[in-house]
Computed example of a mutant assay.
Amino acid sequence: MTLSFDGTVIVPAADPDDGERTAEALVPHLTPTSSVIIVNVIEKAGGAPDKASMEQREKHAEDIFERTRRPLQSTDAALETDILYGTDIVERIFAEAQDRTADAVVFAPREGNRLAELLTGDVARRLVKEASVPVVALPQRDV
């Protein structure tokens, strides 16, 4: 069975490597009618001081988008990027997916150990457990 995305997919990217890895894994599953929305969520501290200036974090998001777009430019899929803001990354991703009537949230899981997942809150695990739209974890492409 071949998986393809004919509609809109949300691709959350936390950093340039993450975005590029997901885009490379997504390319074979796109069609000319696919629409890919790459998002980066800037987490707001909810009253506490932010970790970095907004300008720095928006610049980082643009770096993420630049690297993530590269593999996708070889396809006919429509492509857009969006910086999202919220106090909960997973909730914000699903809110965007619903606002855009996305067919799925698509990502390539990062390699990591259980301790790192516990310390970082494991966004990937929450994406799967708290899904309000289909979530697809793509396998890594062989390079």
Score class of each variant (00 low, 15 high):
49 P>C: 09
87 T>W: 04
47 G>V: 12
44 K>P: 01
77 A>L: 00
55 E>D: 10
59 K>H: 13
82 D>A: 12
78 A>M: 09
60 H>A: 15
65 F>K: 02
91 E>S: 11
41 V>Q: 03
65 F>M: 08
48 A>L: 12
77 A>R: 06
51 K>I: 13
85 Y>D: 07
44 K>Q: 15
45 A>F: 06
85 Y>G: 05
88 D>L: 06
40 N>G: 04
85 Y>M: 08
54 M>I: 07
85 Y>R: 15
86 G>F: 05
68 T>V: 05
70 R>N: 00
61 A>Y: 11
55 E>S: 14
48 A>H: 09
88 D>Y: 03
49 P>T: 09
50 D>A: 15
71 P>Y: 10
93 I>P: 15
44 K>L: 15
76 D>G: 10
76 D>K: 13
45 A>P: 14
40 N>K: 00
91 E>W: 04
68 T>A: 12
43 E>G: 08
67 R>K: 14
86 G>A: 11
49 P>E: 09
75 T>F: 01
47 G>P: 06
70 R>E: 12
89 I>D: 07
54 M>Q: 13
42 I>A: 02
51 K>A: 10
46 G>P: 08
82 D>H: 13
69 R>D: 07
77 A>C: 02
77 A>T: 07
91 E>G: 02
90 V>G: 09
91 E>K: 11
50 D>Q: 15
79 L>R: 05
58 E>Y: 11
44 K>C: 14
75 T>Y: 03
54 M>V: 10
94 F>T: 02
44 K>N: 15
83 I>R: 06
90 V>Y: 08
55 E>V: 10
78 A>F: 09
63 D>H: 12
77 A>Y: 05
57 R>W: 08
60 H>L: 14
94 F>Q: 03
72 L>S: 03
64 I>N: 05
65 F>I: 04
50 D>C: 01
82 D>K: 14
63 D>A: 11
52 A>G: 03
91 E>I: 06
65 F>L: 05
70 R>G: 03
94 F>W: 01
93 I>Y: 11
66 E>I: 03
80 E>V: 03
83 I>S: 06
93 I>S: 10
92 R>P: 07
70 R>I: 00
83 I>G: 01
58 E>C: 04
42 I>C: 08
88 D>E: 12
80 E>G: 15
42 I>S: 00
62 E>L: 14
51 K>C: 00
78 A>V: 02
72 L>A: 00
68 T>K: 00
57 R>L: 14
57 R>Q: 11
72 L>E: 10
80 E>D: 12
65 F>C: 00
58 E>D: 07
73 Q>A: 00
71 P>M: 02
91 E>N: 12
87 T>I: 13
54 M>P: 06
81 T>P: 08
45 A>E: 14
82 D>M: 09
84 L>R: 11
78 A>T: 10
61 A>H: 08
78 A>S: 12
67 R>N: 14
60 H>I: 12
50 D>G: 10
84 L>N: 09
45 A>W: 09
45 A>G: 15
68 T>G: 06
63 D>I: 02
63 D>K: 13
48 A>R: 06
74 S>M: 00
76 D>T: 07
56 Q>E: 13
40 N>Q: 10
66 E>R: 11
75 T>A: 13
